[in-house]
């Protein structure tokens, strides 16, 4: 797996990434998306708690918000709710 921007988050990120990949290959793809995505939720929460501090420190959080705002129309295009 790849590293985190914040070295102090690497360990928890690795645990989350491993959990996600297992869920993605064994459950998500096999069920055609008809699965809940909760089994890695606690690891994701820990990872985000660590990462968010660093994003804020570096001032990247605001740049991300801008980029998200710029690209939000893609959701309608690619999620394709009826």
């Amino acid at each position: 797996m790849s590293a985190s921007l914040a070295p102090e988050c690497n360990e928890v990120k690795e645990r989350y990434d491993t959990c996600f990949l297992k869920w993605y290959s064994e459950k998500y793809l096999r069920s055609n998306g008809k699965t809940d995505d909760n089994e890695c939720a606690n690891l994701f929460k820990d990872y985000q708690k660590c990462l968010k501090v660093v994003l804020k420190e570096k001032g990247i959080d605001k740049l991300i918000d801008e980029a998200r705002e710029d690209t939000k129309e893609n959701d309608a295009l690619y999620i394709k709710r009826k």
Binding site: S2, C9, G33, D37, R81
Partner: peptide, 18 residues
């Protein structure tokens, strides 16, 4: 040098993973 996930969810209606 780094790849960080910021958000992730499955759309309950379409099953699309965002």
């Amino acid at each position: 040098i780094a790849v960080d996930t910021l958000n992730r969810h499955v759309d309950p209606e379409t099953g699309v993973l965002r």
